[in-house]
Simulated assay, not measured.
Amino acid sequence: MREDFKNKVDRYVAALKSAGKEDIPAIRTEFANWYHALSDVEKDELQPFWQEIKDRARQKIAEIKEALNELQQLQDVKIVVEGAEYDLHEWITISEYSRIHHLKVSRVQNWISRGVVPRGKVLAIPQLNNMKLIKNEIYAKA
Rank of each mutant, 00 (worst) to 15 (best):
A142M: 09
Q72F: 04
I94K: 06
V116Q: 08
A57I: 14
V80M: 11
K6S: 09
S113H: 13
E30H: 05
V77P: 00
A84W: 02
A67L: 12
A67Q: 12
N130Q: 08
L128D: 08
Q59K: 11
K104S: 14
A37D: 09
I79G: 00
I112V: 15
P118R: 02
P48D: 04
I61S: 04
A62R: 11
E22P: 03
V77A: 10
R2W: 06
A84I: 12
A19R: 06
K104Y: 08
L46A: 02
E22Q: 06
I100E: 09
E137C: 02
W50S: 00
Y139C: 10
I24D: 00
S18E: 15
Q75N: 12
R58V: 12
S18N: 14
A84P: 05
R107M: 05
K8N: 12
P126F: 04
A19N: 06
I79C: 01
R99D: 15
I53F: 07
A142N: 13
K17P: 02
I79N: 06
L74K: 00
R58T: 10
K78V: 11
T93Q: 03
M1A: 06
L88V: 01
Q109Y: 09
R119V: 12
E45K: 00
K60M: 13
N136C: 04
T29Y: 07
R11N: 14
N110D: 14
K78D: 03
V81E: 09
Y139A: 10
S95Y: 09
N33T: 14
N69F: 05
Y97Q: 01
D44T: 00
E137D: 11
V77K: 07
A19H: 08
D40W: 00
Y12N: 03
P25N: 07
V77D: 14
K132I: 13
I24L: 06
P25K: 06
Y12C: 09
K17F: 11
I27M: 10
Q109L: 15
E70A: 08
L38H: 01
G83R: 06
K65N: 15
L16K: 10
I79H: 00
E82C: 04
R58S: 09
P48Q: 00
K60T: 13
Q51C: 03
K8W: 03
H36K: 07
A14M: 11
A62C: 02
K132M: 15
W34F: 08
N129V: 08
V9E: 07
R99Y: 11
A37W: 01
N110A: 10
E3Y: 08
E85K: 08
E22H: 04
K43Q: 12
Y97I: 06
L68S: 05
E22V: 10
V81M: 09
L123K: 04
K104I: 02
R11L: 13
E82Q: 12
K17I: 14
V80T: 15
Q127M: 04
K17T: 13
L123W: 03
K65A: 13
A67D: 11
A67T: 11
R107D: 09
S39A: 01
D40G: 05
I61L: 12
V80H: 06
S113L: 12
A142C: 02
E42R: 02
D76A: 15
A37G: 14
D44I: 01
V80F: 04
L88R: 01
R28Q: 15
Q73E: 13
G83M: 05
K78L: 02
E137G: 01
W50M: 05
A142E: 15
